[in-house]
């Protein structure tokens, strides 16, 4: 264990995992839906006078197409992104248990460490892909269907179309760290439970509990430690006087969840015995 002469085969494992993912109908459908669903939302919004006024930027959905990706970010950041990313991450280890294929993949040219990182990186690649597709899909839907009028910032100032597009993409980029955190949580659930549905739904349940906790008054400290809080760290970007402290803190919190879940997942996998199967 200490000095394994073989290379770990992370790259091989990663390529293999990506090929398997690309062949899965569930993965393809999710990717297509992430890009196209915002068009459906915008079409539904255009058909009615009502606006989602209880969501940030909701009042401006008929006014500026740049409000659309922001509304979608607020909607998905709270519950959909953890679920979407765990569609892959939550099942990526458990599927080997389901098909009883652990022994096969470990006797190939990959070590346990190689397989772990190959799967972890594949899960994280999918997480980033989901965020990118949702961002581009909702930005395209807003601009094409509603139009590229200036965006009204959270301070009431008008942001011209060019900078608005940039700020929208930057805001979406801030959703990547917490989504990677939930991805790592999905990987951990997948290793620990050896059960696909548990791995897929577990982190979403944790996310919902975190959201409930964030509504508890008087515990501001706790709120700063939750993995759902960084999903709001873009607020500072959309202000007339931008502030970045929540962004930096959110990145740090996400990194701790990511590292913690990955470390725990790897330790569990390393201690597992695959002889009995």
């Amino acid at each position: 264990m200490t000095t394994d002469p073989r290379p770990h085969g992370v790259a091989t494992a990663y390529r293999w995992e990506m090929e398997k993912l690309a062949a899965l109908l569930r993965v393809r459908l999710t990717a297509v839906a992430c890009f196209l669903a915002p068009f459906g939302l915008v079409a539904a919004l255009r058909l009615q006078d009502a606006v989602p006024a209880d969501t940030l930027f909701g009042r401006w959905t008929h006014f500026s197409g740049f409000a659309t990706p922001m509304v979608v970010l607020v909607f998905t950041g709270q519950w959909a992104l953890p679920l979407l990313t765990c569609l892959v991450a939550g099942d990526i280890f458990a599927s080997e248990d389901r098909y009883d294929t652990w022994k096969t993949i470990l006797t190939r040219s990959c070590t346990r460490l190689g397989v772990f990182w190959g799967k972890a990186f594949a899960g994280m690649t999918f997480a980033v892909l989901v965020v990118v597709l949702l961002a581009l899909g909702s930005l395209a839907a807003g601009v094409l269907v509603i139009g590229a009028r200036p965006l009204v910032s959270l301070s009431g100032t008008l942001i011209p179309p060019g900078p608005a597009a940039g700020l929208v993409l930057e805001s979406w980029a801030t959703a990547v760290p917490p989504t990677l955190g939930f991805t790592a949580m999905g990987l951990l659930f997948s290793v620990a439970t050896r059960n696909g549905p548990a791995g897929i739904l577990g982190p979403s349940a944790v996310g919902l509990v975190m959201q409930l906790l964030s509504f508890v008054n008087g515990v501001d400290v706790l709120r700063h430690l939750l993995l759902t809080t960084p999903y709001g760290s873009w607020h500072g970007l959309m202000s007339a006087h931008p502030y970045y402290a929540p962004l930096l803190w959110g990145g740090l919190v996400s990194a701790v969840y990511l590292a913690g879940c990955l470390a725990a997942g790897y330790l569990l996998l390393r201690r597992r015995s695959f002889d009995e199967g």
Binding site: R59, H62, L154, H235
Partner: peptide
């Protein structure tokens, strides 16, 4: 054209970082 009245209701966010 119908446009939202910015003064009827508006949203903002505080820096809680």
């Amino acid at each position: 054209r119908t446009v939202p009245n910015p003064l009827y209701a508006f949203d903002g966010c505080l820096n809680t970082g």
